[in-house]
């Protein structure tokens, strides 16, 4: 699992930066629970999703989003990674 996640490292640091900048929240570790603190509410979540979509050129459908997708920076990185694969696959289809 450790190895599988290694390619996420640059994504994780970029997302940490995005969260610190847009939501003014400091998160110390990528595994930290973003939800336990109550810092993220549904509005800031929507702002965050908009930022992710803008920055990474992906689409995150809210109706398919699960709580676990946004639990930590690491899980958000996995989500972005997944959606990027989807988007490039969609672009590749003629």
């Amino acid at each position: 699992m450790q190895e599988l996640d290694e390619h996420l490292t640059p994504l994780i640091s970029e997302i940490s930066g995005l969260i610190a900048e847009r939501l003014l929240v400091d998160v110390s570790a990528p595994e930290d629970d973003l939800l336990a603190t109550g810092l993220l509410d549904s509005l800031s979540l929507i702002q965050l999703l908009a930022s992710l979509e803008e920055r990474f050129g992906i689409r995150v459908p809210l109706d398919e989003l699960q709580i676990e997708d946004i639990r930590s920076i690491k899980s958000i990185a996995r989500l972005v990674d997944r959606q990027s694969v989807h988007s490039s696959a969609a672009r590749a289809t003629p």
């Binding site: 939800l35 109550g38 809210l62 109706d63």
Partner: peptide, 10 residues
């Protein structure tokens, strides 16, 4: 769970 309210669909 408090976090359930974050995603209206959930």
């Amino acid at each position: 769970p408090p976090e359930i309210s974050l995603i209206p669909h959930r």
